[in-house]
Design a protein around this nucleic acid. Structure first.
Lengths: 231, 231
DNA sequence: TCACAAAACTGAACAGTATTCATTTTTAAA
DNA sequence: TTTAAAAATGAATACTGTTCAGTTTTGTGA
């Protein structure tokens, strides 16, 4: 068979992945079982193993499709926004909006993939976190603009933002999506942006947990991050 | 047998829990297996099921012991510190310090329990999150002192702090504890404290994501939180 | 010290589910 | 239409959590 004519196989694979999102999105990895996925996808259990090495491999494949959709939407929503602060606010909004609209995927991403050590080593993970470069660019832009404090490494700020957003989505999921995920967005984002905003510090109240001078901090941290690969 | 004389049973239970911490702390819930725990605890597999309903029940029992240790240490380390900001800084330090010293428990708490929907309904969970009232008290104190911004609900600030801390511990674990967990503490805490610090806002740069007036925000949110039980 | 009943423990048997693989069916080019 | 490769099948297998009938240990009262 000609390698370009592998439509059929792709189609059943898509069916399987679609079914997997439904099943994995509704119960934990452990509780979800292959037979149910096979049934939903209208294939035999054995068929799944022609497309995926095992149950975990199938789980790890899921973000590929959704990440692409996430990135497309993000690009679109960021277009036309001028300064970095507004871009960050928009980013946070879109992030929460996306998971609100994709609750099944949210459960998979936040409650399974995000805390899975094996997933960190997969191709899917790089896509999953690939878009975070966009975030780094925005932060850098803000630092150059002078609207975001430059006395701190990019990655620290990035981790702060992602940490808070992931946390809010996770809490929302664990509480059975009882409230609107976007409800507290303004306040949470306000706190974070307030924290990273540049201002003329006069040492008025800024003595807590800051023993080194700004310049030293930045250069030192950049090196450390590169060596230790925090992100 | 007299119900007060159940020492023997408690001892084997402790052995089992200790072994469970080791095994669950070294691999995922799925990869960990009962036979290994039984072997490490020097009991038969069947014995475990006399103490715990099932594998998950055993996992959920683990935080009981460690939470007590966490709280004791926290109380001790907070003693003698005067203002709320320094208490929060100390809280963050102690939080990270504790998980740095208990990496096995950290893996269980952050990568398994924290994202487990079933765990949220257990007795262990209430202990696990019980100490967070301490955090609420400190934040309230800061708001009354005037050092922490009072135009925002307590719980929003609490979630921000916990979110960031949990996120940093999680990243550290997923990257195989490659760096010192306390290394970036100063910077992360600085960002958060900077964000929640009270200051005389003149509307200089504070227009992002803040469409309502401070007073309205607070009263509205307090109600919402109570109704929807975010925490 | 012994008897004995309750508590605690044991491990082989059981059950449920992920995975394998020999076989059948489908596909598409010749 | 033929045919060989690709794809799909599902019964058999293997692995692991859980059960339970039987054994051992414990503590008490005679």
């Amino acid at each position: 068979m000609n390698p370009t004519h592998n439509r059929k196989k792709d189609m059943t694979r898509d069916q399987i992945v679609k079914a997997a999102i439904q099943v994995f999105g509704g119960k934990s990895f452990l509780e979800a079982n292959i037979s149910e996925i096979a049934q939903k996808a209208e294939v035999a259990e054995g068929t799944i193993y022609q497309h995926f090495k095992n149950k975990e491999d199938l789980l790890f494949f899921i973000p590929r499709e959704r990440t692409a959709a996430f990135c497309e939407g993000l690009e679109l929503h960021l277009q036309g926004i001028q300064d970095a602060s507004n871009k960050l606010a928009k980013f946070a909004w879109y992030y929460l909006y996306f998971f609100k609209e994709n609750p099944e995927y949210a459960r998979i991403a936040m409650l399974e993939l995000r805390v899975n050590k094996n997933f960190q080593k997969t191709k899917g993970y790089r896509l999953f976190r690939g878009w975070s470069d966009t975030l780094l660019d925005i932060i850098k832009e803000g630092q150059e603009e002078g609207t975001i404090r430059a006395d701190m490494d990019l990655h620290i700020i990035q981790e702060l933002l992602l940490g808070v957003l992931e946390h809010y989505v996770t809490r929302w999921l664990l509480k059975d999506e009882k409230w609107d995920l976007l409800e507290f967005r303004g306040h949470a984002v306000d706190l974070v942006l307030n924290g990273i905003r540049a201002r003329d510090v006069q040492g008025t109240q800024g003595e807590v947990a800051r023993k080194e001078k700004p310049a030293e901090i930045m250069s030192a941290r950049k090196k450390t991050f590169k060596n230790k690969q925090m992100v």
